[in-house]
């Protein structure tokens, strides 16, 4: 699989001065096209700052970021990069521009100068992809949080990006809204082959990704499949993060003499593992 995002010894500091505190230090990360990567870390670990580099909201202090082969420092490719890596933010209210859902979804296309007939087609496809077709003519402020965030995702999808970068898209949503958004994102990744970079601090969301990158103080400290990362329970806890509840349960049972794999992230798998252990006993 080709690399669609690549960072080379990326360093970043909000202060221009020499020797200022680095928010990101020496990050070399590459994301394959079609992958679903969750970036985990507690507050201040630099995960949002990293995401902002994929969309040229921030530029590296040193090092380089390549999006689909384009260097983000290249000012002439700014729009091409932003059109390739669409960004969804935390607060759905602050990224919806228009007073009608479909007008908002069309916003990016209108900016790109897409012909009118094609905008229509793209807007309908984007709303369909996130399951919001029936709300096309609604006013955004009357929608629920999960619905608003799905409209925001549709607004980015209408640009037809190759990558969807999401900066804690579920942080302000209730559990059902979170599930709505996660299901929509998983479907896009599975069915349209969209590369997804999900910044989150919810372990359960990270567990649904194909790859988990854990950050701490501006560095990548763990990187692997969710099973590989979360099975290292002590290491994850050292980083003041929690593991998913299923792993937590297996870990607690292991402490009492059980011998479970710690690699079961879904409730079903976890139940099966415990049944197997009990049956074998």
């Amino acid at each position: 699989m080709p690399e669609i995002i690549k960072t080379e010894s990326l360093c970043f500091s909000y202060d221009e001065e020499e020797g200022a505190q680095l928010v990101l230090s020496d990050i070399g990360l590459s994301v394959e096209a079609g992958d679903f990567v969750a970036v985990l870390g507690h507050n201040g670990s630099g995960k949002s700052t990293l995401a902002k580099h994929f969309n040229v909201i921030l530029l590296p202090t040193s090092g380089a970021v390549y999006v689909d082969g384009m260097n983000t420092a290249d000012a002439e490719r700014l729009f091409a990069i932003r059109g390739t890596a669409g960004m969804v933010f935390q607060n759905p209210d602050n990224q919806i521009v228009a007073t009608v859902v479909e007008e908002d979804v069309a916003f990016a296309c209108e900016n790109m100068g897409v012909p009118q007939a094609e905008i229509r087609a793209r807007v309908d496809a984007a709303l369909e992809a996130v399951g919001m077709t029936e709300y096309a003519r609604h006013a955004p402020h009357l929608l629920s949080g999960g619905q608003k965030q799905r409209v925001a995702i549709a607004g980015v999808l209408a640009m037809e990006p190759k990558i969807l970068v999401m900066d804690e898209p579920t942080a302000m949503l209730d559990p059902s809204g979170r599930a709505e958004v996660m299901n929509a994102v998983k479907k896009l990744n599975r069915e349209k082959g969209l590369t997804v970079v999900l910044i989150t601090h919810h372990m359960d969301e990270a567990a649904q990704a194909r790859r988990v990158v854990v950050m701490e103080r501006g560095k990548v400290v763990m990187d692997g499949t969710p099973e590989d990362v979360f099975s290292q329970v002590e290491r994850v806890r050292e980083l003041s993060l929690a593991v998913p509840q299923t792993v937590e349960l297996e870990y607690a049972l292991n402490a009492h003499g059980a011998n479970l794999s710690l690699r079961d992230l879904s409730v079903e798998d976890c139940a099966r593992e415990i049944m197997k252990y009990l049956g074998a006993d």
Partner: peptide, 18 residues
């Protein structure tokens, strides 16, 4: 920021849905 990320750059070359 969100508008810039969706390629807003003023009225020039803009098309409309409706």
């Amino acid at each position: 920021v969100a508008m810039e990320c969706r390629l807003y750059h003023g009225g020039e070359g803009r098309t409309r849905l409706n």
